[in-house]
Design a binder for these strands. Structure first.
Length: 490
RNA sequence: GGCGCCAUCGUCUAGAGGCCCAGGACAGGUGGUUCUCAGCCAUCAGACCGGGGUUCGAAUCCCCGUGGCGCUACCA
């Protein structure tokens, strides 16, 4: 039975990298009929917060990565780690260390400046005689517990990575590392092994920044008598400058993407493609396809740069293929507190709105931006619309005529509006564009919008007529103003 | 400094010795559809880090460089 885990430390929200790690674990569990376990690694009391725990759970839920066990909290398992540490102490695989952080820092600095081979712990307390230990203890010093890394003539630790094959590490490069702090809390390498061992984890799937930790952990697995899990170290996700993804690369919180109007399915699909691909280069996968086609062996080894452009494209794909009714449900939460024509609109109206916008938006939030003229009482004409379209000879006149025509159209729907306006253009002996473009500008304030006739129908007659009138007045004002200037200039 | 990981178009990748003068997707260019934008369709441009080997033959195997990243914590 496959048992995998996602083990974040709650020091912040669920970020993109963590989400991808969680996803790959989840996919592997689901594809193998195994269990996906959630474990919160909160042994660093100073940096862990309950808010972060909530944020991580929220992110996982949003992505639909449901867990079968947990969340387990390492902070609630301290007795277990202490028990194992005691066991190691008793069997001579660990020892108390009385070195202070200051001393260690000093030694480390010296070793680095001396160009020494390794900068690990020098083993001062390893050979400390019992008498010395007793003396230090009697002084009231609280020791940490260090693991005694097995050394010998040629002690190497062998590991096998599913993605990278067999590897060997020389134990001599590993210093005796701390497994229990003086306050009794375990350090990462120790807690991980105890938990993975106790929880029967069969596959450790995590970021490749943990590769260097793996030899230490293997040593611990072995001396603790646990069965060794398989390891799969995933490539990191980078920002565009090829460094670890961080805030300055833009949003890195999964929840921020929800707020921006990305669909969880798109996010999952995109994340799956960061470091994983099928041989046929398929891009769009349903969740079921992802589960059935996923395999650890097909994960690539090199780091992937997070490309929000491709995410945008993919989100657009998902928006376009989502059932219209469902899309309305998804979009409505982003349209809270709107004014203007949308304020009193019924559901049918919103269905129409989404129908004409679904292929134009990449995120649900973009609806708010692109369709802003539906959500306001008084539109603002953009400079672009004004200069390139409206401030042209004959425009006020054409607008007056379209207003007359639209005032009379009966019934007021897309077909009748289109027929009437095209008829008007024909009657005036001008191209339909000469009517359409100024009208669009005056109704939306913009030069680009969905099909004008659909827009007019959605706006409704009263608002359409009002906006045309407002534009005419604005133009009269502007043109009048500029012509006076012109006269004065002459 | 030591140790480790990685290295194909701008980006994500396919490629597991001949199928590759390297395929797909995003982004970009051009053209078409059209009332604009988007979408859609067509089309173009664009990469095997460098050097040595191995082999009849290497993007694929080996070595050495170079570069990037990671670890080297009483952070995970």
């Amino acid at each position: 039975m496959v048992r995998v885990r996602f083990a974040p430390s709650p020091t912040g929200y669920l970020h993109i990298g963590g989400a991808r790690t969680a996803l790959f674990n989840w996919l592997y569990a689901r594809s193998k009929g195994g269990k996906f376990i959630l474990r919160i690694e909160d042994t660093d009391v100073k940096r862990s917060t309950p808010e972060a725990v909530e944020a991580i759970l929220e992110g996982l839920k949003w992505l639909g990565l449901d867990w079968d066990e947990g969340p387990y909290f390492q902070s609630g398992r301290l007795e277990i780690y202490r028990r194992y540490a005691r066991q190691l102490l008793e069997t001579g695989h660990a020892y108390y260390c009385y070195c202070t952080p200051e001393e260690l820092e000093e030694k480390r600095a010296k070793m680095i400046s001396d160009d020494d081979q390794a900068a690990g712990y020098d083993g001062t307390c390893r050979q400390l005689p019992q008498a010395g230990r007793d003396r230090l203890r009697s002084l009231g010093l609280k020791p940490s517990v260090r693991f005694k890394v097995p050394r010998g003539i040629s002690r190497v630790t062998k590991m096998e990575d599913i993605l990278r094959g067999p590897r060997e590490f020389d134990n001599h490069l590993l210093g005796d590392f701390i497994i229990l702090r003086p306050d009794g809390t375990p350090t990462y390498n120790f807690a991980v092994v105890v938990d993975d061992g106790e929880m029967g984890i069969t596959h450790v799937i995590r970021g490749d920044d943990h590769i260097s930790n793996t030899p230490r952990q293997i040593l611990l697995f072995e001396t603790l008598g646990f069965e060794l899990p398989s390891f799969a170290h995933l490539p990191m996700i980078w920002g565009s400058d090829r460094t670890r993804l961080s805030k300055r690369h833009g949003a890195t919180s999964v929840i921020a993407y929800r707020e921006e109007g990305y669909l969880p399915e798109a996010m999952v699909n995109y994340l799956a493609l960061l470091g994983w691909a099928t041989s046929d280069s398929q891009q769009i996968f349903t969740r079921e396809e992802l589960v059935s086609k996923f395999s650890l062996e097909r994960i690539s080894k090199n780091p992937a740069i997070f490309d929000s452009e491709k995410l945008n494209w993919m989100n657009g794909e998902y928006i376009r293929s989502t059932d219209l009714e469902k899309l309305v449900d998804l979009a409505l939460p982003y349209l809270k507190e709107v004014k203007g024509p949308a304020a009193q609109a019924d559901r049918e109206w919103f269905v129409e709105l989404l129908r004409i916008y679904r292929e134009r938006i990449k995120t649900l939030k973009q609806l708010l931006e692109q369709a802003d003229f539906f959500f306001t009482d008084r539109i603002q004409l953009t400079e672009d619309a004004l200069n390139k379209v409206l401030m042209k000879e004959g425009v006020p006149d054409i607008l007056r005529q379209t207003k007359d025509v639209l005032a009379k159209v009966e019934p007021f729907n897309v077909e009748t509006i289109e027929d009437a306006l095209r008829a008007l253009a024909a009657e005036l002996g001008i191209g339909a564009g000469k009517v359409i473009h100024p009208l669009r500008a005056s109704l939306t304030g913009r030069r680009a919008s969905p099909g004008l006739f659909e827009v007019i129908a959605l706006l409704g007659r009263p608002i359409t007529l009002t906006r045309i009138e407002q534009t005419i007045q604005e133009l009269d004002h502007r043109l009048g103003h500029s012509s006076r200037k012109w006269e004065m200039g002459n």
